[in-house]
Amino acid sequence: MSLQDKYKELLDTAKTSEVNNLQVREQDNVLYVDGDAPSGQVKDNLWNIYNKIDPDYRAGDLVMNVNVSAAAGQKAKVTTDQSNLNIRKGPGTDQPVVGKAAHNEIVTLISKTNDQWFLIKTDAGEEGYAYAQYLTPQ
């Protein structure tokens, strides 16, 4: 069974839920799925389907890089587990912490450095880089 068949439900859902720039490629027995999800909900749903097809993501045959597209000026919610989110001087955990955003706080995206780091600004005026995984564009 090809990987596209195995993950058919996932790929079909990605198409119907308007994931932009969807790219699906198979290489060396790994399926690579890239795209921009219209919302955090769509992304979450895709991950739930992934987990249903491959419980606990054990098979190692899918790399799904589908992220919520974030535009400059957009608001994002701090979606850490419960802790504050570090705001750093540069994009990297080796960079000094210059501020913090509280759990569930709404911040403003200034720019997207890459898929890992966003430049953000809090309502209190703190500006710096935060880990994208803990920011959910609103």
Partner: peptide, 14 residues
């Protein structure tokens, strides 16, 4: 996994 999948790895062995 969401975090690691954005890093463009070849594959992830969990």
């Amino acid at each position: 996994m969401q975090s690691l999948n954005t890093l463009k790895p070849k594959k992830i062995n969990n």
